[in-house]
């Protein structure tokens, strides 16, 4: 089966079931609006949704860059310094025992309703998977390559840059792919707790006004945004791995 046909089927079957559920089940539109109604809401509110999507996308991209950057730096620091491993690693594990979601109200309290509390949420949520997967990759360089490099007279810095980092790129890529899906979760949680804009904020607003069709339309846009981001990061990762593999 061709790729396009598969996508169409994967979309068409659930949509048909959804419409059938609404039509045959007699559900009122404020409980479950049908797909046609959701698409209508999407079209008539396109300006509003686009504006809020822009805010969420900004938060997600900023969070992704900052979180991935911090994660990469942490992984390198841990890989080159046994002292850092000794001190920082247990602390890293302990921070993971805190549910990041529980921090959202505190971040909003400290940073207000603007985009920064959401960016920090996204950073917190993706930092660990990126740092952890890249660090694992850096520590699993095939020992023979390191032996070879040492007999060739490589300094530790050149071993890191020329051998360990390129060898760990596939691990970093899997961390980044996870991060692309997690980052929107962080941003939306932040928006739910307190925001003046963004898709999460718009969903709450629509829910409060019983505009369930708008809520579904927003959710649809959020899902599409996440999918696109996942594809874009996946594409970038594939290019990166192809360069090093």
């Amino acid at each position: 089966m061709s790729g396009a046909l598969r996508v169409v089927l994967a979309l068409a079957v659930p949509l048909a079931l959804w419409q059938a559920l609404v039509s045959l089940g007699g559900l009122p539109p404020f409980i479950l609006p049908g797909p046609v109604r959701v698409l209508e809401a999407l079209w008539s509110n396109r300006g509003l949704i686009a504006w809020h999507a822009g805010i969420t996308l900004t938060e997600v991209l900023a969070g992704l860059f900052l979180g991935a950057g911090l994660g990469i730096l942490t992984a390198i620091l841990l890989a080159v310094s046994p002292m850092a491993r000794y001190i920082v690693r247990p602390a890293l594990i302990v921070t993971q025992s805190l549910p990041v979601f529980a921090l959202a109200p505190i971040l909003t309290l400290w940073m207000g309703y603007g985009i920064w509390s959401k960016i920090v949420m996204a950073v917190l949520i993706i930092y660990f998977p990126v740092a952890s997967s890249f660090f694992d990759g850096l520590m699993r360089t095939p020992p023979g390559w390191l032996d070879l490099g040492r007999t060739m007279g490589a300094s530790p810095a050149r071993l890191l840059w020329r051998i360990r980092v390129p060898a760990a790129i596939p691990s970093l890529a899997s961390g980044l792919r996870l991060a692309a899906v997690y980052a929107p979760i962080g941003a939306v949680i932040g928006e739910w707790v307190g925001a003046a804009g963004g898709l999460g904020y718009l969903m709450l607003l629509a829910n409060g006004r019983v505009k369930i069709d708008l809520m579904f339309a927003t959710l649809l846009v959020l899902a599409l945004l996440t999918l696109l981001l996942h594809r874009a990061v996946g594409w970038a990762c594939d290019r990166l791995v192809a360069r090093t593999d």
Partner: peptide, 25 residues
């Protein structure tokens, strides 16, 4: 040093692997 496995770096071409030593120094 030459080991049982060739220890070629998969992300470098033949020329890159042969000149690895200079690169590492």
């Amino acid at each position: 040093y030459m080991a049982q496995t060739d220890l070629l770096l998969p992300w470098l071409d033949v020329l890159g692997n042969v000149t690895l030593g200079a690169r590492l120094r």
